[in-house]
Write a protein that binds this DNA or RNA. Structure first.
Lengths: 189, 189
DNA sequence: ACATCTACCTAAAGGCTTTAGGCAAAAGGT
DNA sequence: ACCTTTTGCCTAAAGCCTTTAGGTAGATGT
């Protein structure tokens, strides 16, 4: 009887793929075992428990997202960079809904700090180099951008903008126009 | 042996309270039964199954939120109304994290349309009466506002803005200033 | 060929979900 | 008060998911 050749890495990737297919919240160790054609107990050599599996999928998704974001903003500035970064999140969420949901999974502070979370914050901050904002407004703007990227994407994923005109692509595009305008004319306190 | 006197309504409310204490994702029928000091099977007279319980909690939260939002925007306009509405969401999320998470629970379109979801959209739209926006920009703005309210609140709830200066209250306040400015000077296509 | 990992297995205990069938408290009519 | 109906809660049981313990055989290196 030949082996499947699993290790923690592969189990995590298979978990992420499975999440994209059936939804992150539906992930169970049993379901993943079925998918990998392996007995449930076998997975417990690669993953501490069900929670550990979810955390690993979350960290994987955060890292993949950060890599794509870094690619997207390299060599761009201002509105170009803003649009490129924003689209990374939205496109990733549409292509990999399970992974994207996983990226929102609540991690304890230590784990979060050790993962790719901080890279995301730095990249959003980097976008603002193209605009004339000083601290603390820069931080406020980072938080606003994060909120819009995540908020829009997650409402859209939840079907909130389906079945109503105008279509979501247009709102997205105009939302980015609006954010760009806002960053260029950020109000004084 | 005297009865607990439960019905669907009370079970749902107890479920919502429990969600606020232990987190919406931790909700199980068993846990709720323990909380109510009742055997698990008994709850299945009041609730079809675990999913049904969660949906009911979600609908309850959406309704409570809509009621508070309606109170908040009554008799206000412009930036006042914007701030009041935004604070309803944020305050509710902080006071009732379990219910707030429940309000984000994905409902099937039929259930969603029958619940308080559409009321929320109408109220956000009502806020924009105080600003000079025509369709389709009005809809784009509704979506942007929803994204920011939900996005900011959910990142804040997830601890994303902890342990970094300036504190989240300030960013929130300045974010609302920025949104107000944006709505007053919405960019042309 | 040998020892050593290591990937996978069987077995079993415990918890959550859900259905079926029953009993007794509450509610309502006469 | 008495009887009937309703209904709120129960016990029992089956099925699936999680997790641990202990065992076996394929891969790896000497």
């Amino acid at each position: 009887m030949t082996r499947a050749g699993l290790n923690t890495q592969r189990v995590t990737e298979a978990g992420a793929d499975l999440a994209d297919e059936i939804g992150f919240t539906q992930i169970t160790v049993s379901e993943l075992a079925r998918r990998l054609d392996v007995k449930v107990a076998s997975l417990y050599s690669h993953v501490r428990n069900s929670e550990d599996l979810k955390v690993r999928i979350a960290l994987l998704a955060l890292e993949e997202l950060a890599d794509r974001a870094a690619d997207a903003i390299a060599g761009r500035a201002g509105k170009d960079a803003l649009i490129a970064l924003a689209n990374v999140y939205r496109d990733y969420a549409r292509a990999h809904p399970g992974r994207y949901t996983a990226a929102q999974y609540r991690l304890d502070p230590q784990t979060a700090a050790a993962g790719a979370g901080p890279r995301h914050a730095r990249m959003t901050r980097a976008i603002l180099r193209g605009y004339d904002l000083q601290e603390p407004d820069r931080t406020h703007a980072v938080r606003l951008l994060g909120s819009v990227f995540h908020g829009y994407t997650s409402l859209e994923m939840g079907g909130g903008f389906d079945h109503s005109a105008p279509d979501s692509d247009q709102s997205w595009s105009r939302t980015l126009d609006a954010l760009d305008a806002l960053l260029r004319h950020w109000p004084r306190p």
